[in-house]
Each structure stands twice: as structure tokens, then as C-alpha cells.
């Protein structure tokens, strides 16, 4: 299934969506699929933390493995998804919606242009899949 058109991606499988002045961040449906959709725990970032693009933003833990989540853009964490503490499965059920992980107040809006378009991300994941 093609990725939604209103988000952009990084190769470490996080997505970003502009919403007002903030950037909403989550992990892609492809990443969820790689984790067999069995997500047992999500550790979102502390509100107020300052991150650089590529820094570890949080952790997602599945039955299969635990993985770091990386910040796609630099900035301050304005909000983190508290619903995930009770219900981490939201990330698997609705990765681009209710399963968002954090909202970042970007410190360098120009970084947005470095992110992958949905088309580029989809061809990247297709090439990552071994044959």
C-alpha cells in the first residue's frame, strides 16, 4: 500500500507531518510491519526535551525486538502521545494517526526539505526488501 501523501519520511522509518507550527512524528506502516505489528511498549520523549535531527527520540518495543526511534527534524518536544502508555498497540493499528509519538517545535524549518517524499520512501523500502 502506498504511504499517505501528507507525510514525509527518513530512511530510519520515521514519518513527519506539518501541523500548524509543529511537526508530528511517528513510525511508518513499513516499520510496524517489520515488527510483526506486535508492539508491546512505547517510550515517547519527555516534553520540553531538545533534540537534533537523528537523535534518539524514544523506543518502541515489540515481541520481536526493541528499536530506537530517531527524530526526523531538530527542535523541542512540544507534546508527547500519552495515550501510548496505556495502549501501545495504537502505533500498530493507526501508525499515521492515533499512533503518533511526539510533536516537535522545529528549530530549523529548512530541514523539512531533506525529508523523503512518500514516493521516494516507498521505492526505498521496496529496494530494502531482499529478493
Amino acid at each position: 500500500m502506498p504511504s499517505p501523501s501528507d507525510v514525509r519520511f527518513v530512511k530510519s522509518h520515521e514519518w513527519a507531518r506539518r501541523e500548524g507550527g509543529l511537526v508530528v512524528v511517528g513510525i511508518s506502516a513499513y516499520a510496524v510491519e517489520q515488527l510483526n505489528k506486535e508492539i508491546v511498549y512505547v517510550e515517547p520523549p519527555q516534553k520540553g526535551r531538545t533534540l537534533k535531527a537523528g537523535d534518539v527520540l524514544g523506543v518502541v518495543e515489540a515481541v520481536k525486538a526493541a528499536s530506537d526511534i530517531y527524530a526526523p527534524v531538530s527542535g523541542r518536544v512540544a507534546e508527547s502521545n500519552e495515550a501510548l502508555a496505556q495502549n501501545p498497540s495504537l502505533v500498530a493499528e493507526d501508525p499515521y494517526g492515533a499512533g503518533w509519538i511526539a510533536k516537535i517545535e522545529p528549530s530549523d524549518p529548512s530541514e523539512w526539505e531533506n525529508l523523503l517524499s512518500p514516493e521516494d520512501y516507498d521505492s526505498f523500502t521496496a529496494s530494502e526488501e531482499p529478493h
Binding site: E38, V63, P88, S89
Partner: peptide, 10 residues
Amino acid sequence: TRMDELAAAR
């Protein structure tokens, strides 16, 4: 037989 590993973890 097959276990529900997600429920076992959660």
C-alpha cells in the same frame, strides 16, 4: 498450541 505473545507481554 499457538500462544498470543502480544497478550502475554501486555
